[in-house]
Nucleic acid binder design. Structure first.
Lengths: 214, 214
DNA sequence: AAGATACTGTTACCGCAAGTAACACGCAGG
DNA sequence: CCTGCGTGTTACTTGCGGTAACAGTATCTT
């Protein structure tokens, strides 16, 4: 095997791949998640079989596309999570980073999380459902690791950390999704409310007059 | 308009509709979410156009199907939420009810939440992504209402309650989804861990030796 | 230099699922 | 008896994902 020669061709292939991914990105951002392979191929200036040669099938293309955005987001989150500050501040900063990301590029977010949502009746979209989980799972696992590394949770700390990691990520995700749709308050308020929830204000709140309390 | 005559025919139509929904249910449970309209029609012993006459399009059929299960689940959750017990107990009971439901009928759950996941490469499935949100949203709104009715949260209580409602539902959902896939612990342990999280144990936990704490 | 090799690209096709038009039976009421 | 109307059918169109089979072109081998 002639490695030096291979790298040459491989670099060309990689460049092509990146070009295709960028074209796909453009189409997905424009047409929503139901972008067809034909459309992507057209945008890239080539034809379908090439896409399939590079990505195997639609899922492959999607996976590659999702990985780019997912990795970028995870990097931001890691940075916020590792910043030198106290716990509450870190939590708020991480929440804010996530929410800022989905606020800045809602199209990307909707693509990653909610597959065939835009568009008319047609449902021939990307089945992101198959892949939205991986993003949440990865975030959950990362958070779990951070929690377990840094907090003293007594016995069974690993399991507890994982439950919490996935739970907190889910909380962030669901609240963010709802917020992005309705925009009922500012980002800062949302962050504060969620942090308050994690800080036990639910348990600490008093009962309302007249009932046995939630 | 002859109302008495109409009710007669309408009742027949409604019966048919219910039969079709049950057939669809069977197929979806058997074939997973990528069940085709042809397959459902065959199971119901009729042909495609009838399905379309009753439900408009695939999304309509799905919506009807989802509504059944969603309503049933929401009823159970309401019952748990309204039981006469103290707050912690109610929270745990509600969490447990939800988890028990998804544990008992994972097929239904996967259908409602994760569209084209089972099955081979083909992605011609129900695009539940378009409809999984409604379930979560409804749960979030219901919970928000209960929280706001019963807890004294000071000013802005409504907004806070909604954030918490959606956040808690998201936590429950994500943790449940992860748990259902990996089964890392018993249901009771999961319930307890989540309730602990809501009870502020994250904020209360001590730092692990060697680091500045999460 | 000449042929084998490998990569890139094309056209033309298959299979399959959603959704629809057009036609056919069964049963009320004038 | 004929006219509606609701229920059912067959047979079709459209559009997608995915795939053969073939054509140009540069590179490596002998």
């Amino acid at each position: 095997m002639d490695t030096t020669q291979r790298t040459d061709q491989q670099r060309s292939a990689d460049r092509r791949r990146r070009e295709l991914l960028e074209a796909a990105d453009r189409v997905v951002l424009r047409d929503g998640p139901q972008a067809s392979m034909n459309a992507i191929a057209a945008e890239a200036g080539i034809t379908k079989p090439i896409l399939y040669r590079h990505f195997g099938d639609k899922g492959g293309l999607y996976a590659a596309l999702a990985k780019r955005h997912t990795d970028a987001l995870l990097d931001s989150l890691r940075a916020a999570l590792d910043a030198p500050a106290d716990r509450r501040e870190r939590v708020e900063s991480t929440l804010d980073t996530y929410l800022a990301a989905i606020e800045a590029r809602p199209q990307v977010y909707r693509f990653l999380m909610h597959p065939a949502e835009g568009g008319q009746g047609g449902d021939q979209g990307f089945d992101v459902g198959k892949h939205s989980a991986p993003l949440l799972r990865r975030m959950g696992e990362e958070l779990a690791q951070v929690i377990e590394e840094r907090l003293d949770l007594g016995p069974n700390s690993q399991q507890l950390a994982r439950v919490w990691g996935h739970g907190i990520v889910g909380m962030m995700h669901a609240a963010g999704d709802w917020w992005l749709g309705e925009r009922p308050c500012s980002r800062a308020e949302l962050v504060r409310s969620l942090a308050d929830l994690l800080w036990g204000r639910l348990a600490a709140a008093g009962d309302r007059i007249g009932g046995p309390g939630f």
